[in-house]
């Protein structure tokens, strides 16, 4: 009966994952390998193709005020415009992760301050994990899989923009080698969110209890669906250490951007998350 409960939990989290996240690993891999009936993604590999593809790099629901803000601002440079679009999509993704978190059984019963803390500290880690399936060693899908941006192009941007994605590529190549599927990913994301060691948590015990249940579900699922992958559960959990370093480095780069780019403005939601993070 206990394993039936764990399987039901895994199924529930997988359904939430499909409901809240627009681009699954299965779909992303199909696009990247060309095994989809949809048209191939538009490739951005230089400034010319970036300018051509720019209209496509909009968030799904580009709000009018967002457009106005972009028009009114004095962001002439293509890097800044591009990273402005990335920020809009990231803010949208934060709201998707929030909905996913709320669907984890027991999450909304936690102290509201602790819910805020878990999301504040967990959400960038979750986003880094979620971008991994969109990447291969040569580039990454963006804009819901409509665009493929090459790794070389991202590396060619001026400093510090060129330094933002390379660590994520290095991590993604290692993470993708574990070959998790979307249902494994759903459980792993829930484990990350339910980390009881985030700074400032008020009531750790119920969070750890929830995480332990999800960890059991993840362990059971990995054993059943990847029987030949030795120590996969341990290998997946080890990735959580890399994630913390990636987030620390990412926040430092954003800090650097704020200091060096006069026209840089950080999305208010991302500001909230990154302020006093580490």
């Amino acid at each position: 009966p206990e394993s039936a409960d764990l399987r039901a939990l895994a199924r529930h989290l997988y359904e939430s994952y499909l409901k809240y996240f627009p681009l699954t690993k299965a779909k992303a891999r199909a696009i990247l390998s060309g095994k989809t009936s949809d048209s191939a993604p538009f490739v951005i590999h230089d400034m010319k193709s970036l300018l051509e593809g720019e209209q496509m790099i909009n968030s799904r629901q580009m709000p009018a005020q967002e457009l106005r803000r972009a028009e009114m601002s004095v962001m002439h440079e293509v890097e800044l415009r591009f990273f402005h679009s990335c920020q809009s999509r990231s803010a949208e993704a934060v709201s998707e992760v929030t909905e996913f978190a709320k669907s984890i059984p027991g999450f909304v019963s936690l102290d509201l301050n602790d819910q805020v803390t878990l999301l504040k500290y967990g959400v960038i880690e979750v986003l880094i994990i979620m971008i991994a399936p969109l990447m291969n060693k040569d580039g990454t899908l963006i804009s819901y899989g409509q665009i493929f941006m090459t790794r070389e192009f991202l590396k060619s941007l001026r400093k510090p923009f060129c330094e933002m994605m390379e660590p994520k590529f290095e991590f993604s190549v290692r993470f993708n080698a574990l070959e998790l599927d979307d249902s494994d990913m759903a459980l792993f994301l829930a484990v990350i969110i339910l980390s009881g060691d985030r700074p400032g948590l008020l009531n750790v015990k119920p969070i750890e209890d929830l995480q332990e249940t999800v960890l059991h579900a993840l362990e059971l699922q990995l054993k059943t669906s990847h029987p030949d992958s030795l120590q996969l559960f341990a290998k997946v959990l080890q990735k959580m250490t890399d994630l913390r370093q990636l987030v620390t480095d990412h926040v430092q780069l954003i800090q650097l951007l704020k200091e060096t780019e006069v026209d840089w403005c950080l999305h208010p939601l991302l500001q909230e998350i990154m302020r006093d993070l580490y």
Partner: peptide, 21 residues
């Protein structure tokens, strides 16, 4: 904490309706 994280707080409190970000 809630004061410093108003948007996050609002996302947590609202139902799944689209939130004006």
């Amino acid at each position: 904490l809630k004061e410093k994280h108003k948007i996050l707080h609002r996302l947590l409190q609202n139902s799944s309706s689209p939130v004006d970000l």
